[in-house]
Design a protein around this nucleic acid. Structure first.
Lengths: 258, 258
DNA sequence: CGGAATCTTGACGTTAGTCAATTTCTGTGG
DNA sequence: CCACAGAAATTGACTAACGTCAAGATTCCG
């Protein structure tokens, strides 16, 4: 169960995958086999999950499909917060920067996550795609109007925002009180399928992991080596990781081991 | 504008100020002058702010007034999350502990704040009163039922939860990337009225500040001294602080000064 | 196969933590 | 009002963990 966080979403300078720039979504114009939200791969993990199939067209009319290329920005901190996003596929990083360049990644967002929760007038963070990202973009005013018709949308967002807050709390404990080794162990447990023998490919590099854990890239690398040498994890090809000793890794992550 | 955070709220072992243990709130039985929610000091900063006066009685019927003595727990991490709280007066700390005793305070809650946002079945943090705290306690199931009648309550909570998330993001940046001096400067700016020449009394001690900023009590103390020696703040009587040079303090807080 | 980017490893420096007094504050009672 | 005791805060000397700087090794892709 991967992590996440985020906050805003935004006016963006991104490449557009589906050629329907400012055009409202139309079922008949949809790409892929499903051709409408009910057939979307993210149908039951995204915002639409709050609605029954019969009500989907109204939500779909407010949604715009986009594909964000790897490395492109979904939103930039400080920009007017016009849009709200629902990720359907791919991974992006949410981060804040200090004036001198120090960066803190506050979360990674994957399929099903909302970007733009609890936003004020301007985005409070930047979001960059780590791989190609498919998403639904909503105009915030349009979406707010839909809340009146479908209170279940608002409930879904309230639950999602609450979950974000829980994850943020856990991350504050990690950043404020855990050692480098404990941070890395916690991170891997959240991202790697514990059972998978084949190994899981991490979508982010060492630099992003460092910015997420409040460490430097060198410290992350050193602690990867420590975990590997202690036979707690196995590293096949760089970011292809396998958890070898889940109990041992968990012990380190929760701070049980001295 | 003080900070905050929080998450759960809970089954609690607390002293009860207003003698109406499990009895539903009744206007005629209310303490103080206002004698009902419309006269409450927190009328326009709490949950009730989402309702017009005419609808208040319905919300009031679901609320129970409580006073939590300084040092008592509002909730304990892991306990079943039966209640939701709305602080009316006083300050409390929200924290998580690691098994070996390391503690991270994820936020301080004051008048107007909600405790128990986005909660799962069990409280995910403990909350302890730093001074006597007055609050309204709601049964979570009862409150959820009210959401159907008054969608504005849910909207209020969504906005509040979103604000929490923004604050949590800022705190992650602080914990992950700021120096001890920058952390303390950021904290003081959030808690001390910049203009007040008389000085503001902090409700928390050095130990709580340390647990909030991810530092030790000694490091907090040393950096208080540094800020005082640089004439950025003045310390009258221990936790009675005045901001002397707001611009200078802000410069440190945002990481502008090298 | 080659070059750039990413990752790893090593030597050394800096910041904050640890351990230990000492000082200051708070509150209580004489 | 002052004296005292306990708690909280400050200060100092030293240590440990992580950051910085600098090579090298690997991986990735054309």
């Amino acid at each position: 169960m991967p992590f996440h966080d985020m906050l805003n979403h935004g006016v963006m300078s991104v490449s557009i995958g589906v050629p329907m720039a400012a055009m409202p979504y139309r079922p008949s114009a949809e790409p892929g086999a499903g051709t409408h939200c009910a057939g979307c791969a993210a149908r039951h993990i995204g915002l639409c999950d709050a609605l029954v199939d019969i009500d989907l067209p109204e939500l779909a009319a407010a949604a715009q499909w986009r594909t964000i290329r790897s490395g492109a920005l979904l939103m930039t901190e400080g920009d007017p917060a016009r849009y709200f996003f629902n990720i359907n596929h791919g991974t992006a990083k949410v981060y804040r920067d200090l004036p001198d360049g120090r960066r803190q990644i506050t979360g990674f967002v994957t399929a099903g996550y909302f970007v733009g929760l609890g936003m004020p007038a301007n985005y409070s963070a930047s979001v960059e795609a780590l791989e190609d990202v498919r998403l639904c973009r909503f105009d915030r005013l349009t979406l707010r109007a839909l809340f009146v018709t479908f209170p279940s949308l608002e409930r879904k967002l309230l639950i999602a925002t609450g979950n974000e807050l829980l994850i943020a709390q856990a991350q504050m404990l990690l950043l404020g009180r855990k050692s480098a080794l404990e941070r890395l162990a916690s991170f891997l447990l959240a991202w790697i399928e514990p059972a998978s023998p084949a190994g899981t490919r991490l979508p982010m590099g060492r630099s992003d992991i460092a910015d997420y854990l409040g460490l430097t890239i060198e410290t992350v690398s050193r602690n990867f080596t420590i975990l590997r040498q202690r036979r707690l994890i196995a590293i096949s090809t760089e970011q292809e990781i396998t958890i070898v000793n889940c109990a041992g890794l968990t012990g380190i992550a929760i701070g049980a081991a001295a």
